Computed example of a mutant assay.
Amino acid sequence: MEFDRAGVRALMEITQRPELVFVRGEGSWLQDHNGKRYLDTVQGWAVNALGHSPANVIKAITEQASKLINPSPAFYNEPSIELAKRIVEHSCFDRVFFANSGGEANEGAIKLARKWGQINKNNAFKIISFEHSFHGRTLATMSLSGKPGWDRMFAPQVDGFPKAKLNDLESVRALIDDQTVGIMLEPIQGEAGVIPATVEFMQGLRALADEHKLLLIVDEVQTGMGRTGTLFGYEHSGIRPDIMTLGKGIGGGVPLAALCAREEVSCFQPGDQGGTYNGNPLMTAAGVAVFDELMAPGFMESVNARAKQLSEGLLVISAKWGMNGERGEGLLRALMLDQDDGPEIVAAARDRAPEGMLLNSPRPNLLRFMPALNITADEVDLILAWLDEILVKVRG
């Protein structure tokens, strides 16, 4: 199959892409237009929780598509009720609003927190977020994010998001004033390089929020749905957040996200929140299939076994090459390089023959791994063996 350059020019250019077109995927593997296979450690940035084209999700979508795709969010539908019930039963939250992307869910969290502030805190509206955080690409979520330079890209930014330092409780305390309504963070900063919030910090934030009557909001778009070895990332610290957002893995590859809140925080009135496709049965049926697979006996135990295998293997590679170790939780991990050759390693892995490997380097001195949660032990061994081989090629 020939690469269609004319067709590519019809697409708006928003990122640099290699000249290959993926045409098929199964589990941990992708195949391009030339028939070359790739071992995928990125999985759409932690989106494909069960790998590419999982049979149970295909079955759920196919069956649902033949019955009902979208009756509009003005009416109830069965799959959205079933998925909401599952989330509520397995979390500390009481209410769920379904959205189409993590950015949209986070936008909803901002709105919900500000509405709560109008009712309960004399119109308080500020949400403290964190340096180097990533919360989405809408104007408000870019302003909420602490990614360097984002405050200037589409200026003026949305007001009300002062930035603290992750794992520095005093930096948070210093920003609290009478206009503060909440604190929002990722339990693990993914785009920043897989940097976990410590258990002590998460517990300190909960206590600080309680002290000042603030909402604690966790952005679990990347860390939720089994990614860190527990169903939700906040569980590692034993706290109860007030609001949580989900995305990426919740749909197993389809556009689905969720805004979850405790009953006392769920203060939206009719007309405050909505969306044409929100909670449609086609997407939420996929979500039910993903959720039930994650809850199947032995599944999370397998996630943690593969996480241990990957972590230990990355430490061996780090020691061999004089790198700076690895970090993360579950199957969201990072190998900390000793030099800024991450992009070269990514390119060499992709170009490897006869089979390639897809890697991610969100920072030039770091590789991030987000494989399918059902990746096999043999596939983890292959990742580690090929990575070592690629390092020989890149570094000599």
Rank of each mutant, 00 (worst) to 15 (best):
I87S: 00
E89Q: 15
H135A: 05
V96R: 10
V158Y: 01
P71N: 09
Q64W: 09
C92N: 10
T138P: 01
I81Y: 01
P148H: 09
G146M: 05
G103S: 15
K59N: 10
S66M: 11
G103Y: 00
W116Q: 09
L68V: 08
R114F: 07
Q157P: 15
H90T: 15
K147F: 12
K147N: 06
F125W: 12
Q157W: 00
W150A: 08
I81T: 09
K121F: 01
A105W: 01
T62N: 07
P148D: 10
D94I: 07
E104H: 15
N122M: 05
V158S: 05
N100E: 13
E104M: 12
S72F: 12
D94N: 15
G136K: 00
I128N: 10
K126I: 08
M142C: 11
I127Y: 06
A99Q: 13
K147M: 15
A109M: 12
G136L: 02
G108K: 07
I119F: 02
R86L: 15
M142Q: 15
H135N: 13
G146Y: 04
S72K: 09
E63N: 10
Y76M: 06
G117Y: 06
K111F: 07
P148K: 13
A140G: 04
N123T: 07
H135W: 03
S66I: 09
N106W: 03
F130A: 08
V158N: 00
P79G: 12
K121P: 02
S72G: 06
I81P: 00
G102H: 10
I87Q: 00
E82V: 02
N106F: 03
